[in-house]
Amino acid sequence: MKLSSVRYYIHEGISGLLRNSLMTVASIATVAACIFIVTVSCCLIGNLHAMLKQLESDIGIVVFLDDDADSNLINKVSDELNQIEHVTLVTYISPQEALDGLKEEWDADDILSGFDGENNPLPHSFEVSIDSIENQAGILDAIEQIDGIRNVKNAQAATDVLLKLNKVVSIVGVIGIAILGIISVVIITNTIKISVYNRRTEINIMKYVGATDWFIRWPFVVEGIVIGVIGAAIPLIISWPLYSKCVSLAYEHFSILTNIASFLGSYEIFSKIVPLGLLAGIALGVLGSVTSIRKYLKV
């Protein structure tokens, strides 16, 4: 491909967009609408996912040691817990710390005051955090193998609910985005088809003067790229500040949420959505253009 041809394709593509300005606006609006809907869905699903993950990590496993545990045993168990795969954090809780925790939780300083020091009936314990809730069963098995442990506690019911919820969100998210993607391709292809139909005589003439298929296609590919980039940029530029605003409003009005879970930062989520959105826009535009002109190339 010669440089002069490249310049020609870009020039033709852009002047094609300007000449058929109504179709261009319609195509860009279609891409923009589709990408906007997908972006909003991604934000919702992404946050739901992040919140579930956060809840997962809050559900730790608590390991209680035998009453006569000494510092040797505590160190040994701590080491062994740390060696188990998928364990992210092991925190030692002394009987005194456990008691202080209880006092705070129950708001009952007086009732529990007699249990300080030697009278403390609470055992030594560890809080074990794990990377993902799916690995919990395996980790529990591993913990049971360790000597000197009296009891292992975990929130099995909550775990099951979370696991199911996580699965549902993943499946619904993937299916939803896939359906939206297919609808987008169909709408965009149709929009571009109309613009190609308006130019079928032009394509026909090109064929008669000896243009190769790719010579005819390239300007349309350029059009597709421009439509895709602009069509993706508009919803991304709108939805980024919109998302930040929504998050801050949510924190303001539903402060209770802050205790349960926090939203993903707008940079965190949009640094992933922006490149994906632009890529998707370009892919939609190019795919739409190339498939739409195929019919008219057979002359």
């Binding site: 003439i205 008669y208 003067v209 000896g210 243009a211 190769t212 010579f215």
Partner: peptide, 16 residues
Amino acid sequence: PYLRRNLGIVFQDFRL
């Protein structure tokens, strides 16, 4: 396309 480059073609309806 390469065949057509060896053929100059003129139509009744000009096709400009």
